[in-house]
């Protein structure tokens, strides 16, 4: 459908709906439920240079309108992703896919991105400089503009593929990091990753998560995400992908009005596995009701409202 089309870093999308990394695996489980080729694309499970088991369990805790996770980047490593998963993926997904990459050193990021960037089906590299779960890793890159720029510049040197930097919200000024990534050669910014949180089991008097703290996501974080997308849209010229608590077609419209050219849907996939398809199917009716002819027309449309 023409009116849902959008573009992400020069690559056309049939619609702006993208399942977020870590909530969609490699798409196989969802492909058994619906034809995932209806998606704009999807961002597959965060990949690291080496295989990782992740953190000890419990890794999941429930919250009002969301959840905490401390999975810790479990993945089979870049070699297995390229050797085993991508060859299978092209049998059930026929569009460019987004590779989400994490690392614990600048070399880790550059190495994994260089390998993944050579794969024909990879459309975008989304580099996660924000995972709050891993000691000595993601957190420091995403909270320091200099370290963030260093990673972006190193990855920029090894790939021509569009480079999207996924930002952590656990910072004082999100625009400073976003500008730093843009200056270092990023083609796009996606935000937000999870907010650092915790829960305590009152009976056992200990944290629910084995790792004490974890990343908070789900509908509860939507206003925080929307605010940060708004701020980053005003701070940079490169495309912005909105992530955080999106659960409906109306949320997608709101995110796009704040400045997102596409959106990623995360937690909701875990509790309503068909949510992405439902949102895509539901968008035209919501657009009719709101008098929106084409989604591309509304990107950043709420900015400058004071002068309207």
């Amino acid at each position: 459908m023409e009116r849902l089309k959008t573009t992400l870093c020069g690559i056309p999308l049939d619609n702006p709906v993208i399942p977020a990394s870590g909530t969609f695996g490699y798409g196989e489980e969802f492909a058994a439920l619906y034809d995932i080729n209806c998606l704009g694309t999807f961002s597959f499970k965060g990949t690291t240079a080496q295989p990782r088991f992740g953190n000890p369990t419990p890794r999941i805790a429930e919250c009002t309108a969301g959840l905490l996770n401390a999975v810790g980047l479990q993945n089979p490593g870049v070699e297995a992703v390229i050797g085993e998963i991508l060859p299978r993926m092209k049998t059930y997904f026929h569009k460019p896919v987004m590779a989400n990459v994490s690392g614990f050193s600048v070399e880790d990021y550059a190495g994994a991105c260089e390998k993944l960037g050579r794969e024909p089906q990879i459309g975008w590299l989304e580099i996660n400089i924000s995972c709050p779960n891993v000691h000595g890793g993601g957190m420091s890159f995403g909270t320091d503009p200099k370290a963030a720029a260093e990673v972006v510049a190193a990855v920029r040197r090894v790939t021509e593929k569009p480079l999207i930097v996924k930002l952590t919200p656990n910072v004082t000024d999100i625009t400073e990091i976003a500008r730093s990534c843009e200056a270092a050669g990023a083609d796009g910014i996606s935000l937000i990753n999870t907010l650092l949180g915790m829960r305590i089991d009152p009976l056992r008097r200990r944290p629910v998560l084995q790792r004490t703290m974890g990343g908070f996501s789900g509908p509860a974080v939507f206003p925080v995400a929307l605010r940060m997308v708004w701020q980053v849209y005003e701070a940079v010229k490169i495309p912005v992908v909105g992530i955080g608590g999106i659960a409906s077609a109306e949320d997608v419209i709101e995110m796009m009005l704040a400045g997102a050219c596409a959106v990623e849907i995360g937690s909701e996939n875990l509790v309503r596995p068909t949510v992405c398809k439902d949102i895509i199917d539901g968008l035209p009716a919501v657009m009719d009701r709101l008098g929106i002819a084409k989604l591309e027309d509304i990107i950043g449309g709420a900015h400058g409202w004071e002068k309207m």
Binding site: T23, F24, G54, R59, I60, A61, N69, V71
Partner: peptide, 27 residues
């Protein structure tokens, strides 16, 4: 039994280590 997120194998919340590598309790 393990604390689960999704229950169908995508969130990696309920992973365990086994003799054959990591496994998802749910899937």
């Amino acid at each position: 039994e393990e604390r689960m997120g999704c229950g169908f194998g995508v969130c990696m919340g309920c992973s365990i280590q086994t003799a054959g590598g990591s496994r998802r309790v749910c899937a």
